[in-house]
Design a protein around this nucleic acid. Structure first.
Lengths: 228, 228
DNA sequence: TAGCTCACTATACGCTCATATAGTGCGGCC
DNA sequence: GGCCGCACTATATGAGCGTATAGTGAGCTA
């Protein structure tokens, strides 16, 4: 059963430790790491800030526990879904289980705030996508790795931009209604070519000169100017 | 050399006000608003924190100046490029002008950190994309608005994830080499359908039951197994 | 020369944060 | 019964932040 603390929390008789961890995941996902104080988390969990330190040692350690937990839980939920034979394309998942939405939001934040665990997950997803593409859609590109990296980056990036996508759509994409509208557009996006090949060929040709060893950005990143 | 102002302008003998603004844009883009202190900005600009207040009044006011400046400058640069008849598809731009990279990074950060100016720009881009699609690629979708919102969200979102995309690729997408590789994948992405229509139709059908007036956040019970 | 303006610096204030420590009540074990 | 261990709270500490203010010197005007 996919039942568990965070999504369908069921009951308030969780251990204080679990309540702190769940509150942290919720707040980190919403406000980011730096935007969340240990006091906020403690209040959300209904405990004192001191207890947080008692159980986790530090904010950073709590964050690592949250990372590991969110990753683990998401994997388990996905395994459940796969076993039940449900649609497993990442973009279609969030509507079926509120917990997934929360965990995705958390991991997206972790990606933006720089978590090593989330970064590893990103890399895994790229590798998985790469394999999937080379197996099921080998004709879409010659550079599987780049295609997969762009694919995963776009997918997770759109989640990071959910606030703006929702505003442009007039409906929150984390509600069922909003998600359906977004998923529909996504399906169109994945199944119909947007640009005609002629244009793309022309664009590629236009970019070609840049490939020369000419230094268009030879100055790169600040050699000398700043004082440390 | 690049220790100079922000793009082409040129020299280190800018007014202190301009140096502060440019330093702020650089640091805000790299570390985010909250991750940057006025002391950092002052040091990067080679002035005292007090001068920052003298010229801009507050950190928030400085940020608004940066927003307006970045927006304005990006528009001007794009106009220049259009006048010169260069490729104008957003994804292809960044390689040609280092300043564009910086400004895009800044605006992406502003989007994530919640700037009203950047949000307005996002909405403009969605509307522009919507018009472009309905005119030049009217067959890709029936929901132009959602398609455009997803498109812009993905595009800007990938920029937000640049660190991870770069790591997965093994090359920084803000260098010329990395950008070319990314742009190539993007071109493939836009010109070849990834999913076959049959699968998409099936996925749509699977989502259909969700469209019922079920309460999205109903607690206690799973909102039913998803079709199929 | 005197006097004014203003870009600019040095330093201090007040606040919030993560972290640290001291203290309390309660259940299990001999 | 008496003690120990542990979940838990209340409060203190020190660092770092944005902001505020007093002071300084160069350049202008008359």
């Amino acid at each position: 059963m996919v039942g568990g603390p965070i999504g369908d929390p069921a009951f308030e008789d969780l251990t204080a430790r679990a309540r702190i961890r769940d509150a942290a995941i919720r707040l980190f996902a919403e406000r980011g790491i730096d935007g969340t104080t240990v006091r906020d988390i403690a209040q959300e969990a209904g405990v004192s800030p001191g207890l947080l330190r008692h159980h986790f040692g530090s904010k950073e350690a709590l964050r690592e526990v949250c990372d590991a937990y969110a990753l683990d839980r998401l994997v388990k939920i996905k395994e459940d879904l796969v076993f039940e034979g449900k649609v497993a394309t990442p973009g279609f998942l969030p509507s079926v289980h509120p917990t997934i939405v929360l965990l995705y939001r958390y991991l997206t934040r972790a990606l933006l705030d720089g978590s090593s665990g989330a970064a590893a997950m990103f890399d895994d997803m790229v590798t998985l996508s790469e394999q999937w593409i080379s197996k099921h859609a080998p004709t879409v590109t010659e550079d599987y790795r780049a295609y997969a990296a762009v694919f995963v980056g776009m997918q997770s990036g759109m989640l990071a931009m959910h606030e703006h996508v929702s505003r442009a759509l007039g409906v929150d994409i984390f509600t069922t209604e909003g998600h359906l509208r977004m998923a529909g557009a996504l399906a169109d996006f994945y199944s119909h070519p947007l640009l005609d090949p002629g244009f793309v060929t022309k664009a590629r040709a236009a970019m070609e000169p840049l490939r020369a060893p000419n230094p268009p950005t030879a100055t790169g990143t600040d050699p000398g100017a700043e004082g440390a």
